[in-house]
Design a binder for these strands. Sequence first.
DNA 1: TCGGAGTTGTCAATCGTTTGTTGGTGAGCG
DNA 2: CGCTCACCAACAAACGATTGACAACTCCGA
Lengths: 338, 338
Amino acid sequence: MKSSQKTVTLRDVANYSGVSYQTVSRVVNNHANVSEKTRRRVLKSIEELNYRPNRAARSLVTSRSDTIALISFGTTFYGPGQMVSNIMQNAKKNGFRVLPSSLQQLGYKDVKAAIDELHELLIDGIIMIAPVVTDFMSEIGELAGDIPFIQIDVKAKPGIASVVIEQAHGSKLAVEHLIDLGHRQIAEISGPLNWYDAIMRHQSWVDTMEHHGLLHQMSVEGNWSAQSGYEAVQALLDGGAEFTGLVVANDQMALGAIAALNERGFRIPEDVSVVGFDDMPESAYFLPPLTTVHQDFEALGAQAVEYLVSLIRNPNTPIHQRVLYPQLIVRNSTISIR
Amino acid sequence: MKSSQKTVTLRDVANYSGVSYQTVSRVVNNHANVSEKTRRRVLKSIEELNYRPNRAARSLVTSRSDTIALISFGTTFYGPGQMVSNIMQNAKKNGFRVLPSSLQQLGYKDVKAAIDELHELLIDGIIMIAPVVTDFMSEIGELAGDIPFIQIDVKAKPGIASVVIEQAHGSKLAVEHLIDLGHRQIAEISGPLNWYDAIMRHQSWVDTMEHHGLLHQMSVEGNWSAQSGYEAVQALLDGGAEFTGLVVANDQMALGAIAALNERGFRIPEDVSVVGFDDMPESAYFLPPLTTVHQDFEALGAQAVEYLVSLIRNPNTPIHQRVLYPQLIVRNSTISIR
DNA sequence: TCGGAGTTGTCAATCGTTTGTTGGTGAGCG
DNA sequence: CGCTCACCAACAAACGATTGACAACTCCGA
């Protein structure tokens, strides 16, 4: 079976099966008005000639690409990484390819360059994961122009379609869990405070503590990495902080925090109860297994894609926000001190 | 600044700047024989009209797409995930987009469908991460046809370009480290034995043990997850295995293994020395910090892209294998028992 | 003033599709 | 038996670029 290297086109299939090339096109695109007999014959020819439609030619005339773009940032972290992979899967199910463009910087220029490229490629829709605070959020929607556009993981703004997980709620669950267990001195390791998630979790810690009449001085900022969690605990202890409860803005920092606490002679959970955030699969095997806040990234991905697709297929789908709620998973890193 | 929604074409730019559209094309594609003055004028017009070349039209005539495809499998694991992200970065540096197609299954049909699609898209090159043993590896090169193609992370086969990390060497480092520390009873938790990496690490454990005249009965197969590491240790202990050293085929399983060992009353490293594989950033914050084998995924990604790009630009670049070597990182999960 | 090099313009073909309109065939009905 | 209509297939015009051949113009120095 030596397949000729020359590319097979619609016309070749047409000649081979004795119909016009328009008819072949109709068959390929599942148009009506083609008799079953002809259809079968054409399909057979396609098979035999190993015909592959040229997507560039199709895109050229339709101005579509069956592709959605995923502009992302910080995908090496667990959360964003999960979002990416779930979005890919769901897009595929919906018949779209995904073209990721991962930004190293989150400046206006970078975003503009990325979106310009997407225009050139006739991208059908854009999902943007921009978890970091910027001052040009509103301009982004403008850059996208007529390309359907949704944001993920960003404080919902009116006028921009988005799917988010309610971070404040998750943080509240974590803090109140500790309070319920009798803790009064609760420290926090926050994420980098230019990330929306980090800000909201932090603020919610503050609010919840206040609401229960507790002090909220003991907070250190990390950068999501295990190492920064480790260092944050050092900083807390060196600063003289005394606490029996510790909420940490993600599981990886919690891992580092626990390592540091151990090193300083604190037992978990007897001396300090620790709550994480994310519920990575590994967290159940920390020492001790980590109490944490579970985020449903699968649902997030599914919702994002579903929403975007409906925006693509029906441009006057109403713009709104979809909000998902996280859930507390209690394991052994927290204990009652009543 | 109300930008007209109509698409701006080469001709529009030509009219606007008072030159012919060929000249504009020459400018856009950096052709010679365009005076500096004209070039500048055209570039200015492009800027002002916000002209964006239509990639589909360009691809149609050039049969190129400036895009390389990344066929992958199992990207939720640390290793493959790292490869993907490093490849993306390096591709970008080389002026290529990356189109990932993540397979859920690794059957012939799935791979064929994926590669067919890539032909349709006029992809310039393919990098394939297929870490699982299949019986149709040789056919894959055939499927790719004239598209430059390289494999990663696969036992090097003559005739197929590839970039790999020498797994056997890594495993040998791990085992001999334990032997050097005086361990004689060394158990193993392997990866799933239909993965090349897993097979090679396992075989190397067997070989190294044999080479030192040691028994190699104590081995359990995991599936890369922390949970499976946890269960593997249970299985070992329940099976009556007695060991002072444990090599684990990746860090996540090592985490689970350590959790299980703790539960059963074994102290790490006093009672059991544990060595992992991968050197994830978190591993330094395990309890205790994990001795493990570092793989340089960054170099892997860079090499893969560089090699593929040279294959694209110069089709008679010789086909060969590039082999990278892992490195042992000693931390506190291993100790001498002499 | 002429020749030649360097630029720019004209003309045309081509890439492989999609899609609205038109022409042709056969069946159904009166 | 003839007309209408439904259905099918063919015609033709885009879509927006690249690329080559060649003509025309400018500008310079000889």
